[in-house]
Write a protein that binds this DNA or RNA. Structure first.
Lengths: 301, 301
DNA sequence: CTGAATATGTACCTCAATTACAAAACGGGG
DNA sequence: CCCCGTTTTGTAATTGAGGTACATATTCAG
């Protein structure tokens, strides 16, 4: 994992998400600091520790301790990482307050803001073991059926099928509900049903998951934690994503799902290429054993 | 635009570009500092002024003077702004060095790294006027035909068509080459042909652009700057995106294109809803003029 | 109600950043 | 070639920020 072992102060983990997540677990005065920081994110990096302590009404060591609680080495590092985090996800701070209608690049910034926010939240929730399990199931799959419900998810499903298919694994995307049930029923052991659903509550996917699972297929679901689909799935890749209430905005969760699909596809590609290499090695080894030569073989690779 | 009118010290000006630009105009020893900073961008923000001065072989005031020459208030501000500038394009610097095969969340981080890098580069290149022009053309379009070539682009095209269609504008996505030429030929003034192509060199899209343009349709192209397609298009939304040479990795430019499409769709949605509101206002105004009442109208909105 | 554990503040210390000033290098006339 | 003004650079001192040790207050279990 690159995140932990990156340089220090390199802002690997998203401080702001971290802050939200730890909210409530702080000691009383530290919580006051947290509140102030949340409310004045942008100003912090220009403040001295004394100014901040003064503004909050606590002593400077409390501020230092707060920084430590946040996983930083001290106030210095905290300021730096906060500044870096803000530079990347600046737009996220005031998603709805800003005036979209200013035109030009304003809309792009809005979309980017939602994208950053969603994707950062998603990253935090990824369970590596689940990913590994999903990759293994997909790598060894005889065939894969992908389905998604809701506007964005169908696109993601389509893309997932495309990518898997390119890796030489028979894969189809299904968007029709009835067809999905039928496809699900044709799956057996070693096959994978990959379902994408933000809510995880739609009857069609839940029922498809049940059917496929009943026939021994592995059901991989990208969905909301604890949803019906998550419970029904063999491997649940869960992400609870914030949705912007503004209906004009596109659902940013599409991006998060796409990232997961891309990551899965990339890992599968890698696993398969390694398997291929391993096969080649075996072929070569057996050839060597057969005619006793150890030099480079003209055939076999 | 959020970037310029943010608080102070918020890294409004790009320090790194500034550094390149001022290169050569520095006094001798300051130039040495500049060289060192250029070569060790990432480490600087973790260094003390004494360490930096020592590493370069100059005195600390020289470093301070260098910072002043760069337009900063002192070394502190310089470090901070540099860190912010770097945070935005950090991942782009060492994309392939990372080890993918570690499994787990490693793949997700890789995809995210490519995503951030691509999307930030794209954001930098967006020309607001082009976006506005595209939005206007799309808003007033009688019908829209969308097409994309290459694996990722078809998905983007599909999505664009879906979103525009939901806004009540007749829109279709075409992936078949011949069909595209035919569709292009049916377009007229007020219609829009939206083309998505990373390279902008594929004959099919260039020819389609020519045909549609010949019949008076507006051709909006999301593509590489200076490409054949960009030249042929009425409105070219240009982005020169870095592609990772690793073929196992997904093409991150899809994300950038999707963001552009989302931004366009959102702006169009807004423009249309404003048009609707404007229409309502006119109706109400005329009604008011008609029977002279100024109180709230039961009808009209 | 008491004592341990935890939370918070006071006072001090260290060291980083900055400034003031002096020395050195440079450059153009006499 | 030397002198004087300007610019560049370094030394030493100053300021103040960040961090630490320890004392005090608070909380909660028994």
């Amino acid at each position: 994992m690159p995140t932990p072992d990156n340089g220090p102060a390199q802002g690997a983990v998203d401080l702001i998400s971290n802050l939200r997540q730890l909210n409530g677990t702080f000691a009383a005065r530290e919580q006051k600091v947290a509140d102030f920081v949340s409310a004045h994110l942008e100003e912090i990096s220009g403040m001295t520790i004394a100014e901040l302590a003064g503004a909050v009404g606590v002593s400077t060591p409390t501020v230092v301790r707060f920084c430590r609680s946040m996983g930083c080495d001290g106030f210095r590092e905290f300021k730096l990482r906060l500044a870096q985090n803000l530079a990347v996800s600046l737009q996220y701070l005031a998603p709805s307050h800003r005036d979209v209608s200013e035109g030009g690049a304003g809309a792009v910034d809005q979309v980017l803001g939602a994208l950053y926010a969603t994707v950062n939240v998603m990253r935090q929730q990824i369970v590596p073991e689940r990913m590994d399990a999903a990759v293994q199931a997909l790598t060894e799959a005889g065939q894969i059926v992908v389905a998604g419900v809701g506007g964005g998810s169908t696109m993601v499903a389509q893309e997932a099928a495309n990518r898997m298919f390119r890796l030489g694994i028979p894969a189809v995307a299904v968007s029709d509900s009835y067809l999905l049930q039928m496809r699900a029923a044709t799956l057996g052991t070693n096959d994978v049903l990959l379902l994408v659903s933000t809510s995880g509550a739609a009857d069609e996917v839940v029922s498809a998951a049940g059917i496929a699972g009943g026939y021994g297929a592995t059901v991989v679901a990208i969905t909301r934690p604890g949803s019906r689909l998550a419970q029904e799935a063999t491997i649940a890749i869960e992400a609870d994503l914030p949705e912007d209430p503004d209906i004009l905005k596109p659902t940013a969760s599409r991006y998060a799902h796409l990232v997961i699909v891309d990551a899965l596809a990339m890992s599968v590609a890698q696993a398969r290429s390694e398997a291929t290499t391993e096969n080649l090695r075996r072929i070569r080894a057996s050839l060597t054993a057969y005619h006793g030569r150890t030099g480079p073989q003209p055939l076999g690779d």
